[in-house]
Design a protein around this nucleic acid. Sequence first.
RNA 1: GCCAGGGUGGUGAAAUCGGUAUACACGCUAGGUUUAGGACCUAGUGCCCCUUAAAGGCGUGCAGGUUCAAGUCCUGUCCCUGGCACCA
Length: 907
Amino acid sequence: MVKTEYNHNAIEKKWQQNWSKIGLYTPNLNDLKNKFYNLWMFPYPSAEGLHAGHAFASTGSDVIGRYMYMNGKNVFQPIGYDSFGIHSENFALKINDHPAKMIARTTKHYEQQMRSLGHAYDWNRTVTTSDSDYYRWTQWLFTQMFKAGLAYKKKAQVNWCPSCKTVLADEQVVTPAQAGKEPKSSEGETLKIAEGMQVCERCGTLVERKDLEQWFFKITDYANKLLEGLEKINWPEKIKTAQRNWIGRKEWIDIKYPIDGLDEEIVVSTTRPDTNFGATFIVMSPEHPFVARILTSEIKVGDKIKDNISKYVEDTKSKSDAERISEGREKTGIFTNVYAINNLNGNKMPIYITDFVLISVGTGVVVGVPGHDKRDFEFAKKFNLPIKRVVVGKDGDVSEIKRIEQVQEEEGTIINSEFLNGLDVHKATKKIMDYLEDKGWGKRVVRYHLRDWLISRQRYWGPPIPMVYCQVCAKNGQSWFTQERDRKTEVKMDLKSMEGWPASNICDSFAGWYPVLESDLPVSLPNIKDFKPEGTGKGPLAKHPEFYEVECPGCGKKAVRETDVSDTFLDSAWYFLRYPSVGLKQKFAKNQELPWDPQITNDWLPVDLYFGGAEHAVLHLMYARFVWKMLVDNGFVDKSLGYEPFPWFYAHGLMIKDGAKMSKSRGNVVNPDEYVEKYGADTLRLYLMFMGPMDGYPDFRDTGIEGMHKFVERIWAIFQNSQQFSKDQQITIKMHQTIKKVTEDIQLFKYNTAISAIMEYVNVLKVQTQNSIIKSQNHKLKSKDEDIADWVSVSSQYLKTLALLLAPFTPHLAEEVWQQMNPGSGSIHKQKWPSYDPKLVVEQKLTIPVQINGKLRATIEIDREKENDKDYVLSVSKGNKKIQKWLGQQKLKKEIYVPGRLVNFVI
RNA sequence: GCCAGGGUGGUGAAAUCGGUAUACACGCUAGGUUUAGGACCUAGUGCCCCUUAAAGGCGUGCAGGUUCAAGUCCUGUCCCUGGCACCA
């Protein structure tokens, strides 16, 4: 055997340079035949550099891209940097650097790292979200949101991270487990994980609530569209479920109860009216208008009670929602001295005011059913209210009955409901909803859990929100909307046609606000030194009059610019639209500038395969879908492209190290660079893909990668000894089987089993190599008997196939051996993926297990042609010595033969 | 609490229209080669019984069931991971 060492460093570098030189991965985007837009979620360039988890995910995406390439697809595989935003800024603050400087450094480092992994990225079309050339369009997107009536500023109780010193969207407030961080107090001390903990997705600090005026995007307008769209897309079920849960569509019923002695009604909302027969009281949020009317004495309840209520309402004001509904907290409340009447049974129910009922949920009034609800039960115990349970019959929902029995042991009366007898929860709910609507006592309402997207951030490193506020215009009730209305009236647009105009009826609420003129974009982020967040509720730009003092776009007088920046997730909500248009002229349409070329966009979108992490289930993946839908609805993206940006999404898993998620604080971050240096990118890629299924949570281990390195060297050795192969039916069959297996597995992202199939094939070749050494010595003597030409061509076919199958996993090695074998034939990555002959994937000999009473006792070998000859197979089985011994004098009860699978004798 | 998904050797994991459980690797053991180590090569490696071999018994979280046959299907149960949650 000839031994030549495989110099991975030199060979990998050589091919990376060559591919770049010949532009192998820069597709001609005007060639639309078989387009395949293969997208991997772009990383944010942290100061620590790319870690092995990135390499795992990106290689997974690269393998399928390369496979598609070899299957005749015109693959576009771009890469960029999510470099704007809080994550990058936090790193810059940590290392005491300016984010702009840091990003310039880290993106360079990332590029170098990603190039070294040998991914097939089109380096001519990259995107960096902090470039003004990019964020100009993020700002443009904001103005379009505003003009579509989908952006508004409102004072609200919002999530506040005391460490990042900014507000956060609901989606960015998570459990410590989701953040993958240990929870921290606002002082930065590490806390023990407790149930219900809500932390900042970025830094793990316990989130607080603050009342602040903030910009929101009306994603709630799209709740139903976001929900419906999930039905048609090829996404993992768990991601779809997460989005469904987050959108939280539920059918409620608002039920009217007359108030005893008053000409009033109270509207209670519920999703479980089936338990309504067991209602014994009503609880109302302190913010409810009914309470306000008590306090103004419009509704008379007596002075003493009124005073108590007034005090209780005041007390509640100091408490956050989270605090009010926190588990285990003792129930509090005030009786109003007013009763409501349950239409269903005429029962009088006392009305209480309590803080565990939130005005933001339903109608802010809840009917108390202590027999069926834990909170109501606690409340009833505290205020000595009756407890009643509704039994809906033996055939009812089992868990429901169990729950009832549990309470029954404690106290209360049982009501047998004939009305709902025998129905499960869903049917009972439907029946009573129908009944209540028929009687006119209730009305079905669809409600969503989804909340509007809080878009402003009191930080520096982001696109300044391109909005201007003018006090003069505000006083006059003027805004962009009033101007637009006037303009439209002036050009004699049919006013009726404006009915659908999103903001035609909201002009008032936007008094004073103007988007920055499109021609004035970008609103550049000034290079300031005091960019550190201070936590005042205003961003660092608020200290710079030279930034915020501007002319009003409406009246030309002095006005102020918004000083908050937008959320990072806005940057990443549209980047995939930008990639194909990078490098093209900015002015794409006749009358309107767009961030993308409409033609190229129509040709290349939507994304064919989106490859990314499951952690973005309700963040990026929800925001991007929303933005896309808005762009389609407002004519910026052609309807014909469909209403979903990612029809196919694959969620890869997460690599761990020593049983935990990689993080710098744990000190378990694996840097791919040292492995690339020591073993080569091909070995690393192969190891990462072999560790386990792509959607799993593989643990990185050094010993594993050493094993893979040996495998790579073994492959190299086989190619260096290629002349010693001879034709062999066993190898031919194995080759066809391997092509089949690898092809099928890659399509299912089962790279680990695809690689093990290649290993089996290599093991067969290896045995052959050894046998060949002996054979080739005899060969000279017998060469007349053999067809040498055939011998050579078959031999090279075995190896060519091996190289082709390896190409997506080990692109450099495959290229090197391919060029050795086929000089001048072009890159292996442009070759056609091998196909298999279905006739040649089956072996001529079959091994059939023979069982006695279902236990394996022997195996027999038969010819493939005899596969369906039951009598023959059974007689061979009975002729087997071991089986004869087992059968002996026993009576054969039954003989089973599953053709080609097994034989079973029952005795 | 509700909704998904999952529990297989010392380790990562294969195998689910029911049909040879543990493929492929890692690790380990023994031998070869080597001055030694590493590397490489060969053999072995689920557990139990046994001097060894042959033969056998037991084995996919646990307890049952269906079946000629169960990791795979059914019932119950325990545990783990993820999503939602005093949402009324």
